[in-house]
Amino acid sequence: MSVSLYYGAHRATPLNESESTVVARVVTERTASFPYDDEESLYLHDRAAAEPREVVAGSTKMPVDPDRVVPVIVHVLDSVTELRRAVPDAEWHVHLDDLDVPWDEVDGYALPGMRDAGL
């Protein structure tokens, strides 16, 4: 059984050129800094096939190796935090299968305890 992190943003207007550039930069930089070559990283779906109001949509399958799950979640949620800050006026929804991931204005997207050193 696999678990995935899903992320998306909706609004009435499409991304403008500046926002599209920032989104592309975030994806490029965060993908390049991803810690595992053999795991899924931040992945945005083709918006041409998306819902009309969907301006950002993506998903990441979580690793099977339990030692990699937390680093992948941290990295991808930090990436989605950057995306949300680049497109702040959209309605965002981020969830790990059926579990909504809360937004915090200071810390961004995070799950309780995900940055604990003991993990």
Rank of each mutant, 00 (worst) to 15 (best):
V22W: 07
P112W: 04
E19I: 01
R84Q: 08
D97R: 05
A48S: 14
E40W: 14
F34V: 00
V94C: 00
G118E: 15
H95D: 10
E91C: 11
A9T: 01
R30V: 10
L15Q: 01
A32N: 09
A90I: 07
S20M: 10
L111K: 11
V22K: 13
E19V: 13
R53S: 14
H93Q: 02
A90Y: 06
D104R: 02
E29P: 03
R84M: 06
G118F: 14
L42W: 05
L111Y: 02
T81N: 04
P66L: 08
H45R: 06
A48R: 15
D67Q: 11
V76T: 14
V87T: 06
D100C: 00
T60F: 07
V106G: 03
R11N: 05
V23A: 10
A57C: 13
V64M: 12
A90G: 09
M62Q: 14
A24F: 03
D46M: 07
V3N: 08
H10W: 12
A57L: 05
P35I: 03
A50H: 08
D116F: 09
E82W: 04
D97Y: 03
P102D: 05
W92R: 09
Y109G: 06
S4G: 10
S2A: 15
V55A: 09
L15I: 06
P71F: 11
V74D: 09
A50T: 01
P112C: 01
G58F: 03
Y43E: 14
S79G: 12
S4H: 01
A32I: 08
H95E: 03
S41L: 04
P14L: 09
A32Q: 00
G108F: 06
M114T: 00
V56G: 02
T13H: 11
H93W: 11
W92T: 02
K61Q: 15
A9N: 02
R115V: 09
V72H: 01
A12P: 06
R47D: 01
D100L: 01
D78Y: 00
S41K: 01
E17P: 03
V70S: 09
T28V: 08
L15P: 07
P102Q: 10
S4Q: 10
R84F: 09
V106H: 07
E19M: 05
D89Y: 12
M1E: 02
A86M: 01
W103P: 04
A48K: 14
L44I: 11
G113C: 13
R68D: 01
P102T: 13
V3Q: 08
A48P: 00
H95G: 03
G8R: 14
R25V: 02
P52G: 05
D100K: 05
H95R: 10
S33R: 05
H10E: 15
T31D: 10
A90P: 09
L99Q: 13
D46N: 14
D116R: 14
R47L: 15
E40P: 12
M62E: 07
S4I: 07
W92Y: 06
G118P: 07
